[in-house]
Design a protein around this nucleic acid. Sequence first.
DNA 1: TTGACTTCCGAAACCGGTTTCGGCAGGCTT
DNA 2: AAGCCTGCCGAAACCGGTTTCGGAAGTCAA
Lengths: 356, 356
Amino acid sequence: MAKGPVSLKAIAAHLGLTVGTVSRAMNGYPDIAKSTRDRVMEAARELGYRPNNAARSLSTGVTEVVAYIMPEQTSSLSEPFIAELLKGLGETLRKRGWDLMVTHTTSVQDELEQIDRLWNTGVVGAIVISRPLKKDPRIPLMQKLGCPFVVHGRSEADAPFAWYDVDGYEAFMAAVGHLTGLGHRHIAFVGSPLQYEFAQSRLDGYLQGLKVNGLTHDPDLIQIADISDAGGERATRQLLDLPKPPTAILAVTDTVALGVLAAIRTAGLTPGPDISVIGYDGLHFGVHTNPPLTSMEQPRAHAGRRIAEMIFNLLDGADPKDVQELQRAHLVSRSTDAPIKSTNTKQDNSVREKTQ
Amino acid sequence: MAKGPVSLKAIAAHLGLTVGTVSRAMNGYPDIAKSTRDRVMEAARELGYRPNNAARSLSTGVTEVVAYIMPEQTSSLSEPFIAELLKGLGETLRKRGWDLMVTHTTSVQDELEQIDRLWNTGVVGAIVISRPLKKDPRIPLMQKLGCPFVVHGRSEADAPFAWYDVDGYEAFMAAVGHLTGLGHRHIAFVGSPLQYEFAQSRLDGYLQGLKVNGLTHDPDLIQIADISDAGGERATRQLLDLPKPPTAILAVTDTVALGVLAAIRTAGLTPGPDISVIGYDGLHFGVHTNPPLTSMEQPRAHAGRRIAEMIFNLLDGADPKDVQELQRAHLVSRSTDAPIKSTNTKQDNSVREKTQ
DNA sequence: TTGACTTCCGAAACCGGTTTCGGCAGGCTT
DNA sequence: AAGCCTGCCGAAACCGGTTTCGGAAGTCAA
């Protein structure tokens, strides 16, 4: 019995029909008698028919698979974020019979090569990328290829494209507002390399937040770090060595914020009471850090679902410029945001000279 | 120019050959003149030939994709583990031209259905599953289907199969040994549901560790919890409410250990000095917990690579019984393992009666 | 009864590769 | 010079579906 998957031919033979007729019956063509359609459906169910994917794909020209290009350089700490995205993506795709593929790349060049390969060999029928650069070569490439795609994040591009993003600009503006409300006037920003669009917009939001709250912009309070806890730690050491260290630090991601917390603790201070820290992402493990991390939470489970739906919209013929969605982050206050210390004007380590 | 992918036919036309000849030239058949083979290769490179995947798959009957079945019920905290595995898997598969697909399932029934579908429709050519049950229906199913597969973890089965695992039994035995060396005699175990093979073997290792160290086995010190921080927290509350609470707790995973730490802190105690805690997995975020978590680390980056290689071994005809690998975990000591407190014999909360 | 019109299915081309088979041309032997 | 062997390529079947086209039956009206 169980000798490989059952083909159309098997059903046709079983019923005394031709494969063409069986195929049309299963695909709802109107030129098939109701009675034979029922017989075909019944036989398919009974025999356990499994349509060969390669054959369908070859014949129709579409492949019901979307590729998710893994952001390179993802620290293990940022993975929960991606895993939740993948879950939402995968489950929603599945509802329309699509599957999800993941691809790890080693460089920008490799990334372009993979996109070209995945699309042109017909391995996938659509692509999702995350964390775009301000000028991201992948976007014009996919546009040229004619491959349906959704970008998780925004980017500059000549032609409009489909994207899903959370408003980091607004979030960091709000975070600055929250901290000024707590009395902070000396707020630092630990960011990541500015070729990433998200890094730039969060920095811009921080700067705008300073402006609307009447604070002056001190370049020393801006540090650019790797997207990792180690990066955040290095950057924070720089900030703490300043003649006049910040009383609050905004971190571009929760991963970076972990390093910020570590550096503060290492300096003998306690995050929150001594120096406020706010991260971004709202990752769950923030409740287990020392102390629990205040963060700007973004709707993560939602992201994967929506991106999958956007893919289907594109496939159904929607104009990319109509397939764009901007969500908002909101503050989840745990233990690292606190009012400024009253004794804060005097700084022990302000005797040190500014060396640069 | 850029009008869709270049097919064999295009090359054949360009060179005045037939597709069959071009195909054989590219696949190294001996009946092709060296000169024409060179011409074909050159033309393929020049025109940017992209073999259609569906056509190849249909013709050869193999699909160069492996599916990774996502363990259901993965808390967001355990995701770093999976992400690292996927990375190793994906990168190693890519070296031989294979791609990686991920599938999220909603139930055991759905899982079996997905495996059947993925294999019988030819969407994938091999499968990897994680975290098997002691008696896992997926294994006999894949054996019946004839689908090459590797199990990440061990399981009971009639016929031998390929697996990669880390010795949890030995690890928990060693952990108990480490704690007794620190003077602990009252060691608890927070485990997960015993239908999972890994849960059972880690529990067995714990029990064996007690035995070889001459400790008696107290059933009250064994708690079974969900694989999550919340589960670990609930279980630990039970332990702390005991007339004679443990002086050390072994957690079945780092995720669970996070909850253990939280419960201990909530009770006004500090993990390490007051109660030792050892987790399992060695996840990096353990350095950021309060306090940093001691854990049994397993070689994670290695796992993905090896599993991919094992897939290829299977594909190359290896006998599944020869494709099995057992790795060891080793203790990474951070701050939650400490000598037992000398004042420990007297317990403040031991006045409470045992209620169950 | 004949013509037009449906209804319904078979036949066949096609998607883009892989692989088997057969035969032409040239060089070799005897 | 006939026969044979080898090197090399074209022709065609095949994988398992999808889709177009044409025609055989049946229906109905004139």
